[in-house]
Simulated assay, not measured.
Amino acid sequence: MLSAFLLLGYLCGSVPFGVLLTRWLRGVDVRASGSGNIGATNVTRVAGKKLGAVVLLLDALKAVLPVALAVHYLPGDAKAHALVGLAAVLGHVYPVWLKLQGGKGVASALGVLVVLVPKAALAGAIIYGLVVARWRVSSVGSLSAAVVAIATAFLTAPSREYVLLTAGLFVLMLWTHRSNLLRLARRTEHRL
Rank of each mutant, 00 (worst) to 15 (best):
residue 130 L to H: 04
residue 185 A to T: 02
residue 96 V to W: 15
residue 183 R to L: 05
residue 22 T to P: 00
residue 69 L to R: 10
residue 97 W to K: 01
residue 75 P to F: 13
residue 100 L to C: 08
residue 161 E to D: 10
residue 90 L to E: 10
residue 65 L to K: 08
residue 183 R to G: 09
residue 154 F to G: 02
residue 124 G to T: 12
residue 62 K to R: 11
residue 11 L to T: 06
residue 165 L to D: 00
residue 91 G to F: 00
residue 170 F to L: 15
residue 163 V to K: 02
residue 116 L to V: 10
residue 145 A to Y: 10
residue 1 M to D: 13
residue 126 I to W: 12
residue 7 L to Y: 13
residue 28 V to I: 06
residue 3 S to N: 13
residue 181 L to V: 04
residue 23 R to V: 07
residue 45 R to W: 10
residue 11 L to A: 09
residue 49 K to R: 13
residue 137 V to F: 07
residue 19 V to G: 02
residue 119 K to W: 14
residue 118 P to R: 05
residue 24 W to N: 11
residue 15 V to C: 09
residue 35 S to F: 01
residue 101 Q to A: 14
residue 85 G to A: 04
residue 5 F to D: 02
residue 175 W to Q: 13
residue 23 R to C: 01
residue 155 L to M: 09
residue 39 G to Y: 00
residue 87 A to E: 05
residue 17 F to M: 03
residue 30 V to P: 02
residue 10 Y to K: 11
residue 159 S to A: 14
residue 97 W to L: 14
residue 57 L to E: 11
residue 83 L to K: 06
residue 40 A to E: 09
residue 155 L to P: 02
residue 167 A to W: 00
residue 108 S to A: 15
residue 159 S to K: 14
residue 89 V to L: 03
residue 17 F to A: 09
residue 154 F to E: 05
residue 137 V to A: 07
residue 154 F to S: 05
residue 35 S to I: 10
residue 11 L to F: 07
residue 190 H to I: 15
residue 51 L to H: 07
residue 28 V to E: 03
residue 29 D to A: 02
residue 180 N to M: 06
residue 72 H to Q: 14
residue 174 L to C: 10
residue 12 C to P: 00
residue 114 V to D: 04
residue 95 P to F: 12
residue 56 L to K: 10
residue 101 Q to Y: 12
residue 86 L to H: 08
residue 106 V to I: 15
residue 71 V to N: 08
residue 73 Y to N: 03
residue 45 R to M: 05
residue 25 L to K: 07
residue 14 S to W: 03
residue 128 Y to H: 09
residue 15 V to L: 13
residue 26 R to Y: 04
residue 10 Y to E: 06
residue 167 A to P: 01
residue 86 L to Q: 10
residue 120 A to W: 05
residue 56 L to I: 09
residue 130 L to T: 03
residue 144 S to D: 03
residue 146 A to K: 06
residue 31 R to Q: 13
residue 106 V to Y: 00
